[in-house]
Simulated scan of single mutants.
Amino acid sequence: MAIALQKFSLSGPAGHLEGVAHIPDGAPRAVAVVAHPLPTMGGTMENKVAVTLGKTFSELGCVALRFNFRGVGASEGEFDGGEGETEDLAAVARYAQEQFGEALPLLLSGFSFGGYVAARAAQKLKPQHLVLAAPAVGRFAMPAVVPDTLVIHGEHDEVVPLADALAWARPQHLPIVVLPDAGHFFHGRLTQLRDIVKRHFSGVEL
């Protein structure tokens, strides 16, 4: 499937937001928004995990949007610890549905801090699907998520220990897909991450 990359910009709650859309051939099945890791630790929409998620969703037939949170790259504003970033994600989701189809299902995803932001945004936006890669539980006040959320975590995550992720998931009876011997950034395991997401949506009506 041919995927076109298209830069976009919109007026967000703290000023201009920049991003990149992965646009598949043909009519899109859904809109996916991908949130990047912690800006104060160098996280941007060009993070390899965020890019992998964007590519994967576009290969599944979604229009997938990556974007820079406020204060990152050309996006205006300042880091807000998650509160403002949740508003940023909501603004991008609204923009995506306005541009590509109000009736399209919404999929939210995020890596690390972006997973925390996506989980927060999901409480208000009620997406059809939520995909979290190494969400920053323990470092931020992760909310509970819906039971069919896909959570992928590395066994040897050096930033967000697997034990913390399990402690968050346990009271929710929430399954976690654990990649043995993988670290926080899924080095050498991005293809496996992609395949897990694709299998999750195999036969699923987006």
Rank of each mutant, 00 (worst) to 15 (best):
F100G: 04
P127N: 00
D164E: 15
Q97T: 13
L107S: 00
A169S: 06
L104N: 03
T56L: 04
G77W: 06
K48A: 14
G73T: 05
G84Q: 10
L132K: 07
F140S: 04
Y116M: 02
R139P: 06
G154C: 08
V131L: 14
C62T: 11
P143W: 11
G77K: 08
G54N: 03
V51D: 10
E98A: 15
N68S: 09
L106Y: 08
V49I: 14
A134Q: 01
S58C: 12
L125F: 09
G73P: 04
P161T: 07
H156Q: 15
D148Y: 08
H129P: 00
V63G: 12
A121H: 03
H153R: 02
A144I: 03
P161D: 04
H156T: 15
R70F: 02
V160A: 00
P161Q: 04
E158C: 11
L53I: 14
R139G: 14
P127M: 03
L89V: 13
R170L: 14
H153F: 04
D164K: 11
L125Q: 04
G77Q: 10
G101W: 12
P143F: 08
A103D: 15
P135C: 06
L125A: 05
E83R: 09
T52W: 01
H156A: 10
V49K: 00
D157G: 02
N47D: 14
G138H: 05
A93I: 12
G110R: 02
L89Q: 06
L166R: 15
A141C: 01
L60S: 01
L108P: 00
H156N: 15
P161S: 07
V137N: 02
A121M: 10
A103I: 04
H129D: 13
V49T: 08
Q97S: 15
V145M: 05
D157W: 09
R70Q: 10
L60E: 05
A163H: 13
G84S: 10
H153C: 02
R66L: 12
G81T: 09
E59S: 14
E85M: 09
E83D: 10
D157H: 06
E98C: 08
G43Q: 07
